[in-house]
Simulated assay, not measured.
Amino acid sequence: MVSLFRSGLWRLNIAAGEQGRGYGRFAVESVAAEILRRGGKELYVTWHPGEHGPEGFYLGLGFRDTGERSEGETVGVLALD
């Protein structure tokens, strides 16, 4: 059975001067833990592609590009199992 619902993270913003201190990783891991607690198996996120975008951050956490685009943004998914 295919699920019609997705659990996701929308607009994670960390101030430029605070990036690289683990706040973003903590936020993503906290959301992932809650999705797992509720029985979910995947965490979705979207990001604007580009040189200064967060793609490297998300890919570094294990997200993969689904090949899907949503309003010009890349859709990524992280398997939680």
Rank of each mutant, 00 (worst) to 15 (best):
V2C: 00
V2E: 04
S3H: 05
S3E: 00
S3N: 05
L4T: 11
F5I: 13
F5W: 06
F5K: 11
R6A: 13
R6D: 09
S7N: 14
G8E: 14
L9G: 10
W10R: 12
R11G: 09
R11H: 13
L12M: 10
L12P: 13
L12E: 08
N13V: 15
A15L: 11
A15S: 12
A16Y: 01
A16F: 01
A16S: 12
G17W: 02
E18M: 11
E18C: 11
G20E: 00
G20R: 00
G20K: 00
G22Y: 12
Y23P: 12
G24V: 05
G24Y: 03
G24R: 03
G24E: 01
F26W: 02
A27T: 14
V28H: 01
V28Y: 01
V28I: 12
S30T: 15
V31M: 07
V31K: 01
A32P: 10
A33T: 08
A33D: 11
A33V: 04
A33H: 04
E34D: 14
E34K: 13
E34P: 10
E34Q: 14
E34A: 14
I35P: 14
I35Y: 05
I35S: 10
I35C: 10
I35M: 06
L36E: 10
L36S: 08
L36N: 03
R37N: 09
R37H: 11
R38N: 12
R38A: 15
G39F: 07
G40Y: 04
G40F: 05
G40N: 06
G40T: 06
K41H: 09
K41L: 02
K41I: 03
K41R: 14
K41N: 04
E42F: 07
E42W: 06
Y44D: 09
Y44V: 12
Y44Q: 11
V45K: 01
V45H: 01
V45C: 13
T46G: 05
W47Q: 02
H48A: 12
H48S: 08
H48N: 06
H48M: 11
H48F: 07
P49V: 04
P49N: 05
G50C: 03
E51W: 03
E51L: 11
G53E: 02
G53I: 13
P54N: 09
E55G: 08
E55R: 13
E55V: 02
G56I: 02
G56Q: 03
F57N: 05
F57D: 03
F57L: 06
F57R: 05
F57V: 12
F57S: 04
Y58M: 03
L59N: 02
L59V: 11
G60I: 07
G60K: 06
L61E: 02
L61F: 08
L61Q: 10
G62K: 09
F63D: 01
F63P: 05
F63E: 01
R64I: 15
R64S: 14
D65W: 01
T66V: 09
G67P: 12
E68S: 09
E68W: 10
E68R: 15
E71W: 13
E71M: 13
E71Y: 14
G72L: 09
E73A: 14
T74S: 13
V75H: 09
V75F: 08
G76M: 06
G76I: 11
V77P: 03
V77G: 04
V77Q: 03
V77Y: 02
V77A: 03
V77R: 06
V77H: 04
L78G: 07
L78Q: 01
L78T: 07
L78D: 00
A79I: 01
L80Q: 08
L80I: 12
D81I: 02
